[in-house]
Design a protein around this nucleic acid. Structure first.
Lengths: 181, 181
DNA sequence: GTCTATATGGGGATAGAC
DNA sequence: GTCTATCCCCATATAGAC
């Protein structure tokens, strides 16, 4: 519930009183669970990355070993979007508020984020070794390109306009083939 | 100066005292220029979009009429990144804080944002009519894909690591050709 | 158009009863 | 482990002198 408030209002605008109220508590009671507002938000941030990492890794691991790269990529993209747009308030809160946090807080989420970025780097580097990724493409830059575009969907996606799976498919196509004929 | 504070700290965390101090004023004096904090931030948001729209439009308009699509696209991408990463605190503030603003404030920036999105939609639709964009690609989705990826660079780009023009070139290549061989 | 002073409200955090 | 009560600070905004 705290995650949802952070996502919708931003870090500074959320009060411990409001978080406590949503949990049926008083603000002072939160201090039995977290030493400070910073500790609380770090827990939310870390959970958000853990959720998306687990979802993406599981989605790809569940595929047969011999499926084409494109299928594996689309599974990963779909899982990322599902975590961000549908499943996890923690993941969406992370994407929304990270850029606005005090440097000390961002620093504490860095190691967990790096693990997720590392998952994508390994995925793309392995693809490049197998020849599924063009040799001229820098995998780390492709990862920034890809995750940037995916995370931005948080700002415009509306489930009423169509299922996220359709976005995942179109985005995978754009990512693989580009816009040119 | 207010724009820089909004970008770095977020909307709620910025105080009128801080903005006034950076301008060599007292907080009360700001009310001779803006009726409220909301009015002030709306002015910053609108200026940010105006800056990037002007920069991108000028960059493309300055090219000879017969240059290839790819050249025009790279000029637009470069101009967008320059406004976001180098030139305009207003543009970067807009990208950073928009998602966290009260709905009433976002609403007031909507018309100006729509003009910029409209510029890209027309650019991409014209390209599709000329056959420079694949027929199966939805121009509006391509615009979301593209601007999402570009704006995300605000979170990772560091000028010490290399010029933004290099990012613009690589990103244009990824956008046009994708990652697959 | 700037200032000082202040009204009014809310924030994070702590003390100590139960 | 929750509560009430409170400390202390800072926020937006206004009043009125200069």
């Amino acid at each position: 519930m705290a995650a949802r408030q952070f996502r919708e209002q931003g870090y500074a605008a959320v009060s411990l009183r409001g978080i406590a109220a949503a949990a049926g508590l008083r603000a002072a009671s939160l201090y039995n669970h977290f030493a400070s507002k910073e500790d609380l938000v770090v827990a939310v941030l870390d959970d958000g990355i853990a959720a998306v990492l687990h979802a993406v890794d599981a989605a790809v691991a569940d595929l047969p070993a011999d499926v084409p790269f494109r299928t594996r990529l689309q599974a990963a993209v779909t899982a990322h979007l599902r975590s961000l747009l549908d499943r996890s308030d923690y993941t969406s809160a992370n994407v929304r508020i990270f850029g606005q946090l005090p440097a000390a807080v961002r620093e504490r989420n860095k190691a967990v984020r790096a693990r997720y970025e590392g998952w994508w780097d390994e995925f793309l580097e392995a693809a490049q070794r197998r020849g599924d990724l063009r040799a001229e493409v820098d995998p780390a830059l492709a990862r920034l390109w890809l995750l940037g575009a995916l995370n931005a969907s948080l700002e415009w996606f509306r489930p009423e306009r169509g299922p996220l799976e359709a976005v995942a498919e179109s985005y995978t196509d754009l990512l693989c083939r580009g816009i040119e004929p």
